[in-house]
Design a binder for these strands. Structure first.
Lengths: 211, 211
DNA sequence: ATGAGAGGCGCGATTATTCACATTGCCCCG
DNA sequence: CGGGGCAATGTGAATAATCGCGCCTCTCAT
């Protein structure tokens, strides 16, 4: 009994992972010191080596835990027909996930900017599936959009929309005058993203034109 | 004569600024070492102190040079009536600027994630003007959209779109199979952004709805 | 020669990592 | 039941590398 995975007091290793996740996400791999991590947990830095081989292994473990959570929705989407409705639902799930835990987006952003260990693995596991060339939307008539060659750019744009909201949130806090992670802010962001997604689904062709 | 600002050989101070800009943008303030900067310039790190008081002053100078360039288009937009056409033109200018020099976006992203010196000043000078409550679009009939309360979110979204493209570019490089900063890629990104901006201008109300 | 700019040297702080050691709880054997 | 190990987990001290930064000297062009 007393299974530590079931809402019991978190183990030291888990508390280290929590602290490290926050710090890696905020400051990046190299700017995060093991002393900072240890301080948050309330132990001394050499004690970390009882739980993780070294700094890089700790970083790996943090990534692994996050990837397990965030890879799920895309796998689920691919488990069935890719219809408009299911894309909407998938996007909403992703947005809610990033609001619930902004750390993956932040880690990813650091990795994109500075590299760091396991960056290629991150790309492969999170993004590669979204850019597979055979990814088509069934049911709707998106052929016009698909043929425009803009589809990968759209995938990228919506990914940017979701991730950048999270990574830029600290800057937007006082510009918006409200907590970017509040329930109300989440609803607003969802409204906007869905409106833009509808625009893509209803794409009628034509480039830009200001008038 | 031999004015160093006019396409002559750049002075040492300018070469230091160039190197520091790239490194601060890639690795952030604290992860950038003055040794790295000096190496790029081809001098030893103590020599940097002949040109800049200390690391923070160097960072300040880098920011100042970037802000001078990137603040211009918004100031120009505000110099006249804010019409649909001029918003289109402003957005295109911004996108092209970020493609020409991705460093400001990257610097900003680091600041948003980790703080660092002068972050508040950055927010005030770049973003505050975009979120002024009296900012309205003249001419078009956007009242429906404005009344939806989503306007600041749209401003944020398009900012995210532009900045995140740049900050995530290293990750997208091999996913797209082409250089994200090529002319062709720029055109594609512009097409997509303009299409989404048109969707905002033609906003008809209504929330989401998948079918 | 004179002053700006480059380099050498080194101090003090921080970091990742290792090591020797203390403490704790648990299992097993007598 | 009791105690001898033993693994797990903590600690402080020590090490080697790196960093920001200041001091002092040298060099070279005007």
């Amino acid at each position: 009994m007393n299974n530590p995975a079931v809402s019991a007091a978190p183990s030291t290793a888990e508390r280290i992972l929590d602290a490290a996740e926050d710090l890696f996400a905020a400051k990046g791999y190299s700017a995060t010191s093991l002393g900072d991590v240890a301080d948050r947990v309330g132990i001394r830095s050499p004690s970390l080596y009882n739980h993780f081989k070294n700094k890089e292994a700790l970083y790996e473990a943090v990534l692994e835990r996050l990837l397990a959570v965030f890879s799920a929705p895309l796998a689920e989407l691919e488990g069935g027909p890719v219809t408009n409705e299911r894309v909407f639902h998938w996007l909403e799930t992703i947005v809610r996930q990033h609001h619930a835990n902004p750390n993956l987006a932040r880690l990813l952003q650091h990795a994109a900017l500075s590299g760091g260990p396991h960056t290629n693995e991150l790309i492969d596991r999170l993004f590669r599936p979204m850019f597979r060339p055979d990814a088509k939307i069934e049911g709707g008539d998106l052929t016009l959009f698909e043929n425009s060659g803009l589809q990968p750019w759209a995938v990228m744009a919506f990914n940017n929309l979701v991730m950048s909201y999270v990574t830029m949130a600290p800057m937007y806090r006082d510009l918006l005058g409200q907590d970017p992670f509040s329930e109300a802010a989440l609803e607003n962001q969802l409204s906007l993203i869905k409106m833009l997604l509808r625009a893509v689904f209803e794409y009628k062709g034509g480039a830009a034109g200001a008038g």
